[in-house]
Design a protein around this nucleic acid. Sequence first.
DNA 1: GCCGTTTTCGGCCCGACTGTTTTCAGTCG
Length: 609
Amino acid sequence: MVFSGGTGYARFAVWIHVSPGERIIGFWCVPVMQNSEITRLFEELADLLEIQGENPFRIRAYRNAARTLGDLPESVSQIVADTTRQLEDLPGIGKDLAAKIQTIVTTGTLPQLEELRSVVPAGVVEMLRVPGLGPKKAAALFQQLQVTSLAELKTQCESGAVAKLKGFGAKTAQSILEGLAHLEQAGQRLYLAEVEPLAEELLAHLRRVPGVTRVEAAGSFRRRRETVGDLDLLALASDSAGVMQALAGHPAVEKVLQQGETKQRVRLKLGLEMDLRVVPAESYGAALQYFTGSKDHNIVVRQRAIERGLKLNEYGLFRGETRECGATEEEVYAAVGLPWIAPELREARREFDWAISGSLPTLIEPGDLKGDLHMHTTATDGAGTIREMIEAALARGLKYIAITDHSQRVSMANGLDAGRLRKHWAEIETIRADYPHIHVLKGIECDILEDATLDLPDDVLAEAEWVLAVLHYGLKQPAAQITRRLMTAIENPHVDAIGHLTGRLIGKRPAAEMDLPAVLQGMAQQGKWLEINAHPARLDADDLTVAQARELGIPVVINSDAHSVQGFEVLKYGVYQARRGGLSAADVMNTLAWGEFHRRLQRRRRADH
DNA sequence: GCCGTTTTCGGCCCGACTGTTTTCAGTCG
């Protein structure tokens, strides 16, 4: 059995091993490390080694390991504690790194890291965040000018000392100053939903430029990641200077940072940077494939090219000096023995296994959604009335919705107690009779309280036609308690689905810590459905969790969490997240026509009683 | 530091742009 407790950094668990005769035979304490903390330590180690001028492949091994651990669905601490498991079975983890992980998990740190930290101050590592400053220059600044902080770096640039260093110069010093200024005011990744309207606008702008045949966005934007760090556009044009000039002249562009024959880099007023690449037609597919990434995906694709005696770059696929193909992505993938892979899957996770075995999923499309099972009205914190929300849903072509206002615990949002909720439902019943072309479910977004009870009694929940159970408060509780709360909801027969599973707000609030494999296992066993909350700041569950839900056969619903009639607009971001998790329409319950959806829901509910 | 349908050593994806050089290193994606 496992107990865990404590808060903040020093988090401890006690494993008590009990023999068949219930006698305690072992007892010890180990710090429970979040995977993200181990990832952070390995990334820091890689940065430090890079500044030290270490073997780049060794550094990459650390970064690969960090990624492997970051993508891992289960806790590394648990694998370490489990004597039947081997860290070395994980990709990119060998004997050496397994031992280092073991050390980190059991001691909370790594002697090698401590030693490096004593040689290279934290401020030097911080300099790597300055655009244009890499490990070599950071090391030179530290060794030759004793710069150990961003503040000192600024001073030394302004004094002219940096410009005098060998390999530096006036322009380098100036670009460091600009990089420092940029770091202060921006540097954050933006939500996909914040970038998408501008990206569409820029694409439309460039498509109007004479001589431009095609323009598309690549990069993390095309992969539909939750956030976008910079934007990559690819153009097929007869006159590259003309396209670049057109982009530079767009009012959204603040400054041209670089410009060459084929590549232009600009800073947008929105705060992010953007690359424009102009490529010839015969290279367009290879370039689109290349600039879409991810980097890890491309490494695998290029490796496959090498195995076949080919070389792949953004200009095409070459055998010696001869171009074999490159005009379309399809022919590039085909040449390395793969079917075309949807951009959302290109993260070097499962897509190559699927592609090779012929089991790539046909991904869900935004147009597949027929219902929305999470929205609010003026009864709590929504801006639209029941009628307004129904009419807005109808206008979007939705065939069924659930009205899910807050339960009483969410007092700030005027949450509903049993009495108000029953009146609210009675009102929904009356109003829905006026709308024969859409089915409206009497629902509730019921809080899972800090003490692992539900915010409304079972007899009330039993009257609901759709119950979404969610965490809003106490998100910083220890993982064991969060897990217990979720298990309570999962085991309650009236709960249909778990909404915004971890409560995270991207870039603002971390996900609640929990035993995710246990929670998902519980959901699979109890037949509960998992919500993908389409709000651009939530997108919770994330892509990795969604992928695990898919493997466990947990049905998914994609919901808007609309708080106004405009709130349905975000549904597509939920669909993107589902695509990144590898979901087909068949995996998502609210792609079903009403009749089939209703039968599935009733079957789920009967199975629970 | 990892890894192996050319296996236990010798590889590890590839090119654009910039600045400081005088043929290239550093940074970035």
